[in-house]
Simulated scan of single mutants.
Amino acid sequence: MKAIVYTQHGLPIEDPKALQDADLPMPLAGPSDLLVEVRAVAVNPVDTKVRRGAAVTEARVLGWDASGIVRAVGAEVTLFAPGDEVFYAGSLTRPGSYSQFQVVDERIVGRKPANLDFAQAAALPLTSITAWELLFDRIKVPEGGGEGKSLLIIGAGGGVGSILTQLARRMTGLTVIGTASRGLTQQWVRELGAHHTIDHSKPMKPQLAALGFEAVDIVVSLTHTDRHYAEIVEVLAPQGQFALIDDPETLDAMPLKRKSISLHWELMFTRSMFQTPDMIRQHELLNRVAQMVEQGSLRTTLSEHFGDINAANMRRAHALVESGKAHGKIVLAYA
């Protein structure tokens, strides 16, 4: 089968060897696995981080967002059948989605929204799971709750932010404030449902004050947390909540003590990596996302389609993600 691989970590994305086309053997489904014919994939920051930082001794397939068609199922599979259209984000511990076929545990797979094509659907899984787990599992905002409280999303125009903004606006009573540094991205965030937008490249406290917020109850930091950390602590209300998904080199929790701020870290791969007893929650929440998309209460965050799934196009996609100038999701699909 066709696949895209990397064989040496740390190469600049301009180097043709950073991502290469390859032919690999067809994978075999285990007892609880689906064999999926991949039709489309989306590119996430984790793809570029692994390519740059994870050393390999053999060719590795990246990719943690896909949609496709189930072609075979393992002996213990009960949730899906051959021919089902699905979407999912896969596992860090298994080969990724930059390939014609992929094996994935059924417990982290959802049914593809019927009103989306494969490219539109591929933009959703990883960011939807991350945003959902942040909001409802880590911060524990009740569905329909949060009335009278404020949520500041730093990096609201990115993939996770684009979904988190929608979920918070449509499924909670929180006042949503999204940050973005460019006018185009701020407009995107407002279209997704943010009540207010501010520019995180400028001091945030005076911008919040101008909107009438002395402090905010919840901050979710999705990018450059180390750059914004001191200001995050400053703008959070006493007994507030702080959640993040990125990887600052260090994070000193001591500044949170004075205000009794709680700290929450989200990694959507935790359940699949540790095979947690509640791993099927990701199947359930992806089905909820599909239902919301079909009802029109949630939209795909696809922003750019980079064409066929091949190494040249994938290098272009990685370059845009690494530039920090992407908004929404970049998707590629097999013709």
Rank of each mutant, 00 (worst) to 15 (best):
76 E>M: 10
56 V>M: 03
97 S>C: 09
273 M>S: 11
330 I>F: 11
95 P>E: 15
117 D>V: 12
231 E>C: 01
44 N>E: 08
6 Y>M: 07
175 T>N: 06
143 E>Q: 14
256 L>I: 07
15 D>C: 06
172 T>A: 09
116 L>M: 08
238 P>D: 14
3 A>D: 07
13 I>S: 01
330 I>D: 01
228 H>K: 04
144 G>C: 05
97 S>D: 09
22 A>W: 07
1 M>L: 10
201 S>L: 14
239 Q>P: 00
89 A>D: 12
96 G>W: 13
231 E>A: 02
263 L>N: 11
95 P>V: 15
205 K>F: 02
183 G>W: 09
74 G>S: 10
54 A>Q: 14
180 A>Y: 11
266 E>G: 05
230 A>E: 07
73 V>I: 15
117 D>R: 01
119 A>K: 08
19 L>P: 00
118 F>Y: 15
35 L>F: 01
2 K>A: 05
230 A>V: 00
298 L>E: 02
199 D>N: 15
20 Q>D: 06
85 E>K: 06
144 G>S: 04
43 V>T: 12
265 W>H: 13
2 K>P: 00
156 A>C: 02
95 P>H: 14
83 G>Q: 06
73 V>T: 14
211 L>K: 07
219 V>L: 03
298 L>K: 00
10 G>V: 12
149 K>R: 15
219 V>S: 07
150 S>G: 12
330 I>W: 01
99 S>G: 11
334 Y>T: 07
229 Y>I: 02
228 H>S: 11
65 D>F: 11
309 I>T: 07
52 R>L: 15
167 L>R: 02
31 P>R: 10
22 A>S: 14
277 P>K: 12
2 K>I: 08
196 H>A: 11
127 T>Y: 06
93 T>E: 13
212 G>E: 02
202 K>M: 13
240 G>P: 01
139 I>D: 07
34 L>F: 01
307 G>W: 09
81 A>T: 12
163 I>F: 09
192 L>S: 09
33 D>F: 02
323 S>I: 11
306 F>W: 07
249 E>I: 13
38 V>D: 06
218 I>Q: 06
293 V>W: 02
78 T>A: 11
224 H>G: 05
305 H>G: 08
61 V>Y: 11
316 R>D: 14
224 H>C: 10
137 D>L: 12
292 M>E: 10
283 H>T: 06
122 A>C: 04
298 L>F: 01
92 L>W: 11
6 Y>Q: 04
44 N>G: 06
154 I>T: 05
268 M>L: 15
291 Q>P: 00
314 M>A: 13
166 Q>A: 04
293 V>D: 02
248 P>E: 14
243 A>W: 03
48 T>Y: 08
184 L>C: 01
224 H>T: 15
216 V>K: 07
117 D>Q: 05
322 E>S: 04
240 G>C: 09
240 G>T: 04
203 P>T: 03
179 T>M: 13
98 Y>F: 15
11 L>V: 05
88 Y>T: 15
212 G>H: 06
138 R>Q: 14
